[in-house]
């Protein structure tokens, strides 16, 4: 499996945006190098605002920049952008509906990998999802992140974009487009089970689908990269006729896509939903593979969960 950097991809997406829109401004809390933004700093020094190590002030200053008509993108770690600067994200950015884009790196335990829990964004989606007015996007590989980072500037108002460690598995072919709000099926052998997923778990979901299909279980897998707002029409389509639902994500099982899908299914077409993710506990340091193994997000875990679900 090839590996690319979703963090660097953010810089590339911002550069793509800067080519056509000089009002884009990169806001850093000593985090520009997190996305390897050296060329943005060199080519567009006027469009780079270094705030120093100060997530809260960087978030609030982004609001100030946006109020002047600029298009700030504040880059930080998922855990600090959504937890340390959470109040500023809510009150200074989301409540006035300002055009601020926030990028959170190390989204998920695998993305935080050996850094350990303090630097792993395990609740970021749950937090931003409960704040009104924030579009929440979690693309699944570097090619998608680059396109999402470009596309988010066309979404009015605040956007939260989740990215990874910089050593992230490629999933989609390079020419795959990214359209905010769209879901995308990446496996379809039947409707016994529909699996929704986002982020860097798509490859194990796909291989689990292959195993399940061999066992005679019809399964459909769908990427939901725009977690908020959910594309309700497409979700209804995917859920139509499905026997049961599994959600797989590298996030706490509380608050993330699993919760979003559960809420949606309860409201619209009640059926059994199983949420797979970090089971309301903290993870630890380790390689992505080791972490997924220990905390139950491997191909094998998904297969077992699906079989058990159909037996119940």
């Amino acid at each position: 499996m090839s590996i690319s950097s979703t963090r660097r991809a953010v810089s590339e997406g911002i550069l793509d945006a800067l080519e056509v829109d000089k009002s884009v401004v990169l806001v850093s809390s000593d985090s520009a190098l997190v996305i390897k933004a050296q060329d943005i700093i060199e080519e567009y020094p006027e469009n780079y605002v270094e705030m120093g190590i100060s997530e809260q002030a960087a978030m609030a200053a982004s609001a100030g920049l946006a109020s002047c008509g600029l298009k700030p993108v504040y880059v930080s770690y998922a855990v600090f952008a959504t937890l340390r600067a959470c109040e500023q994200f809510r009150n200074a950015v989301a409540y006035p509906g300002l055009d601020v884009k926030v990028v959170g790196a190390n989204g998920g335990m695998a993305s935080g990998e050996r850094e350990g829990v303090t630097h792993q964004g395990l609740e970021d989606i749950g937090i931003v999802r409960t704040i009104p007015g924030i579009t929440v996007i979690s693309p699944s590989d570097a090619g998608q992140v680059r396109k999402a980072a470009r596309a988010m500037f066309d979404i009015p108002g605040p956007v939260y974009l989740r990215t990874g460690s910089g050593r992230d598995p490629d999933f989609w072919s390079e020419d795959t487009d990214f359209i905010p709000g769209k879901t995308r099926s990446f496996f379809d052998s039947g409707s016994d089970i529909v699996i929704f997923a986002h982020g860097f778990v798509l490859s194990q979901v796909k291989s689990a689908c292959e195993v399940l299909t061999e066992k005679g279980i019809g399964v459909k897998a769908v990427e939901v990269a725009t977690i908020k707002p959910l594309n309700e029409k497409e979700m209804l389509g995917h859920l139509h006729g499905a026997g049961a639902v599994i959600v797989v994500e590298d996030h706490n099982v509380i608050g993330g896509l699993g919760s979003a899908v559960t809420e949606f299914v309860c409201d619209n077409c009640p059926k059994k939903v199983v949420r797979m993710g970090l089971n309301d506990r903290f993870s630890e340091s380790g390689s992505p593979e080791e972490l997924y193994q220990k905390y139950g997000l491997t191909e094998k875990d998904i297969v077992e969960k699906a079989i058990k679900l159909l037996q119940d």
Binding site: A63, G64, L65, C68, A92
Partner: peptide, 27 residues
């Protein structure tokens, strides 16, 4: 009203963003 404020301290940080933004815009 130029900024949504009340949570103490945030307004000053927003003002810093505005002052920087106005400089970027050469105002």
């Amino acid at each position: 009203v130029e900024a949504t404020t009340g949570p103490l301290g945030n307004g000053l940080a927003m003002a810093v963003g505005m002052a920087k933004g106005l400089k970027i815009l050469k105002k």
